[in-house]
Write a protein that binds this DNA or RNA. Structure first.
Lengths: 286, 286
DNA sequence: GAAAGGCATAAGCTGCGCGCATGCTTGACC
DNA sequence: GGTCAAGCATGCGCGCAGCTTATGCCTTTC
């Protein structure tokens, strides 16, 4: 097998035109260089240098070898810089999986903040599927979960924020006038829910606040669709504050008592520098 | 310093997804692979593989490393291919220096014959200068000399052919009618000569045939120019048979007694395979 | 619960490559 | 022309890197 050190010696000899000079530059002795070149010539079966009284001169094959050695060493240098970039977090890739309401406003804002700090790190986002399973399967590096989810075993959990849940009512709803609404007054409403993971959460908690189990009449997984349902007066829903603004024919009211869910980032233990950096951006207060 | 063997192990692990499998493919043991990867990870400061219960999986940095290692190994393979080509004479470069009259017909024909056999060898020709000196200086690989030249010390001399020298007369010259001409009849002619290396040769020999020293009235180093002088009836000249055809208003006659010069190829001792192949093409009878 | 597959670690050994010392050739200088 | 200096080749001994063997630990599977 060829050796990179041999190629480095070859390049130095080609550049300096002398075994002794190359040896000096590479902090080794002239005999070592001589042996290396001789071995390389024996293994390739080609004379690479003509030995002159004053140094050496590359043959045609020697010139080609020096040139090609330079290309190899260039790729090696690229290898080392890439690895250094990965080690320092300058380069890399962070694959994120998030639930839909996080993708509306929170994740894009954090992506922008991270990209400003680490322009060479590639970001990708997946919405949907099972974020926790994707992490343990290695399909994504970071998954955002809510307290409705149970994080899988063997992952690191980083609490990010407490996301308040608001009540979304049609603009012309009788209770839509104030800033807040007593949940008990919504006991008879028809509720809109999703299957996963932005749903109402543990129904037991909501039932306690309502004074009874909510009547879930509609199921829709898309937030735009849900907004349409609410605006049409078909039902009411909980809307996470982190999802941002809603259409103008919907009012968001703070429920009383307040409701909230926690948002976590989960990742495999001891992640790479890029993922570590991304987690630190996530954890930084907005 | 990075090691190519390490990169090869890295590539195998990336391809097979397992230390054990890579070890088997590379005819080594699993601990050796484990140590190599661990050392590489320590030196780069990046975790390259996640260790799973069933084999390993590359991290983001690992994927980048495997990819770049592939590029390095590709260049190395190219290195080895090129060296093999040079060893077998399939690739290479032959720089030739020739005197003007050889460049007219002989060298082009030999170049074409050689190129048919070795299409990947680069050929180049230099006419003029001191061919012998160019060989010892390493500027060219093969020089064509005539017996008028004295080959320098320390080169290999390969006799190629005996080049007959003809007498060129204007078409309307009184002696231009036959096939040959007695040199003694040309004793009073005005001779055209060049400075080097296609000149009359040792004047002593010509003088003996002429019955006295030739009267050299014109000196021109260009064969086209000389032909013009001869055609105009300004003088006569010797014309090497290897130079090929002349313009139609000139007659070539065989002198009596015959004159000739030897043509040699000289090269440095123990040349590369490409040069050796070229010399064998030169030496092959036309 | 036991067995097997796979990675990590420890210990010992081998071989490759380096440094040191020396010889040889060639060109330069007085 | 004789001596010196520069530079490459070679022989010898040694140190270190990396491999093999042996073993342990963890996880999965039957």
């Amino acid at each position: 097998m060829l050796d990179l050190w041999t190629l480095q010696i070859l390049a130095a000899v080609g550049r300096l035109g002398s075994f002794s000079a190359a040896a000096g530059e590479l902090s080794m002795t002239q005999p070592a260089v001589s042996r290396q070149i001789a071995t390389l010539e024996r293994r390739t079966g080609v004379r690479l240098f003509e030995r002159l009284p004053r140094g050496v001169r590359p043959t045609g094959a020697g010139r080609a070898a020096i040139e090609q050695a330079g290309r190899v060493l260039g790729e090696v240098a690229l290898f080392e810089t890439r690895m250094r970039d990965h080690a320092t977090g300058r380069a890399g890739r962070v694959r994120v999986s998030a639930f839909p309401s996080a993708a509306t406003s929170y994740v894009p804002e954090r992506f922008r903040a991270f990209a400003a700090l680490h322009p060479d790190v590639e970001l990708s986002l997946t919405v949907g599927g099972d974020p926790g399973a994707a992490v343990v399967a290695g399909e994504v590096d970071v998954a955002l979960l809510t307290s409705w989810d149970t994080p899988p075993k063997g992952v690191e959990v980083l609490p990010l924020l407490e996301d308040e849940l608001l009540v979304a009512l049609a603009r012309d709803h009788p209770l839509a006038g104030g800033e807040s609404v007593r949940l008990r007054e919504l006991a008879a409403e028809r509720w809109i829910d999703g299957t996963h993971p932005d749903c109402l959460g543990p129904v037991s908690r909501l039932a306690a606040a309502l004074g009874g189990p909510p009547g879930i009449s509609h199921v829709c997984d898309d937030w735009n669709g849900r907004q349409g349902l609410v605006a049409a007066g078909v039902g009411v829903m909980l809307y996470p504050a982190m999802a941002g603004a809603v259409r103008s024919d919907i009012r968001l009211l703070r429920p009383s008592p307040r409701l909230s869910r926690s948002v976590y980032a989960v990742s495999l233990p001891s992640p790479g520098a890029a993922v570590r950096a991304f987690l630190s951006v996530l954890a930084r207060p907005a």
